[in-house]
Design a protein around this nucleic acid. Sequence first.
DNA 1: AGTGGCCGCTAAACTGATTTAGCAGAGCAT
DNA 2: ATGCTCTGCTAAATCAGTTTAGCGGCCACT
Lengths: 341, 341
Amino acid sequence: MGRNRATLADVARRAGLSKTAASMVLNGREGTRLSAEAHQRVFAAAEELGYRPNLAARSLRTRKTATIAFVSDIVATTRFAGGLIRGALDAARERDHVLLITETQGDATFEQYAIEAMLDRQVDGVIYAAMATRRLTVPPAILGGPVVLLNATSSDNLPCVLPDDDRAGRAVATALLEYGHRDAIALIGRNRIKEGDQEISLAARARLHGIQQALGDAGVTLLAESFCTEWLPEHGYAATRALLNRPQRPSAIICMNDRLAFGAYQALGEAGLTVPDDISVISFDDDPIASWLRPGLATTALPHEQMGRRAVELLLDGGAAEPSLVAMPLRRRRSLAPPAS
Amino acid sequence: MGRNRATLADVARRAGLSKTAASMVLNGREGTRLSAEAHQRVFAAAEELGYRPNLAARSLRTRKTATIAFVSDIVATTRFAGGLIRGALDAARERDHVLLITETQGDATFEQYAIEAMLDRQVDGVIYAAMATRRLTVPPAILGGPVVLLNATSSDNLPCVLPDDDRAGRAVATALLEYGHRDAIALIGRNRIKEGDQEISLAARARLHGIQQALGDAGVTLLAESFCTEWLPEHGYAATRALLNRPQRPSAIICMNDRLAFGAYQALGEAGLTVPDDISVISFDDDPIASWLRPGLATTALPHEQMGRRAVELLLDGGAAEPSLVAMPLRRRRSLAPPAS
DNA sequence: AGTGGCCGCTAAACTGATTTAGCAGAGCAT
DNA sequence: ATGCTCTGCTAAATCAGTTTAGCGGCCACT
């Protein structure tokens, strides 16, 4: 790749100046006393030769690589990861940086390997990302340099970027209240483990808290709460079927994520019920399926792209140590309507 | 990041040998006449100091970086990309390489930028990936070194990795034939543009060809073919509704991808028809939704992980110039049954 | 005339590895 | 004693930048 590239020495020679002069001019160093004419000649020479610096040589000296490590447990390869990476890529490009991506798959050996590979390459900083929003333990090896946690927190008081699930919970509940739902709102996706263990999930507790706050403020209590061992379509399906067997049918269902909501749609369809005329549904994540469902599923979007971007900004531009919460916008779709009177 | 690392000189000093000796021992050079004892001492010193070579220094000298560029139009951030990247990451790790990922978003300026960033970092090779399987034009700048096309071909006769859509087409049609479907098979997702313009899609034509071959071999002709401007759920939905308005109802539907099939399920559900008792459905891609649908959707899986892996292997281990076709395994799920008699 | 300071620029050191060229000593044959 | 080869190792060059230290010339001031 890229043999025969012009070197700084070539540029200097062509400009009739020293390497020092060429280096200073090209780096736009302040306070050098090089003449305007010298500047011209260097720029011209660099242009004519198509000069591009050899970054290996530069970083050998400066210990900077303009490279960021993006280390994740498994995020890089899931449907949700795309946005995180895209946002990070965009922000990195704007700052003339590049992303070195690795995945640990939750395996300690792989993680060790990944981190060594990053350190060997002298990355300028590390973005440590998690697939599920959660609290985790950062490997000590990366604490030597700048680190930002993405979609995660830790006990190290490191800068971190999280979705604002609490506010999303309020938004979801508030949307239902606005439509006039009060006494027949059901919640699908309660889960003691996700709510209790921060190392597994931060989202479950925050979403629940937001929902409860908003409903509490309005003096409303939930009609029913369904517990699910996982947040997958089949669990949403089963929970919804169970709900429909109860004496009072809910007027609206809040699902803790879109996959549960997908299962809920399936069960409602089978029961001959129509969304939103018979039952409104609202959810979290804005998974692509949310817009594919009929009718479209109202949901609060995980702002992955914003989050990825924010992580790079915090890493390179520096930033507050308190968690950086990114808003989850409510996507209003046709799954919401006033309760059938 | 990683200050205070021991250098080769430190190792040499501790071992009481020269840098040359230390370098040769650590690189396992053949044909040096260094004594067994010298080997021991160098290894011991490196171990004790936790020595890790500075890759910037090494690549300055060797022009190798153990880094692969993964350049894609937009693949890195879509639901389909995950597998490609994961496979590539795995294969890269096995070969002690690392991936530098960039995305061009189909923008020429971004592409130019991305490629320069890669070349500046002296990557050992480039994987140029496309989101949709298609023919594309490779930017001349990257032809200076090893290149592998992933999910794409070009006119440059470069090594490339593609899914075997033709064989998948045969497999899909054959599966239906095995269940006894013959005269009432409908196809959803014909598209003149996708089938005609290789720069947009290679999959459409190949899948269609495979289907037609298999059916032709069995002396079967399609009951109906629906054209769709895009391969999204809404188009599958509309096409299926139209199909159901025809005098003869199909016994099975082939969808050109899973999103169309998702739309088909919606339309069938609304029409009160049951999959697979009333109509069988089979498709391509193995999108995550395929397993979420009720009943599970039979489909041929895009072997993204295999493909990503193969691309790295071709790049680093060298390989044939003819297209490397990766099999698309048939996922048998409950959407298949014999025709209702 | 001497000297101090500024201007415009450069030589050389430095980063940490790999690689080339070659040295000192031992053993052997002549 | 001389020359030769082989063994075991090292000095120094090299990669392509950045950075430090400082040089020669000119001007102004005393």
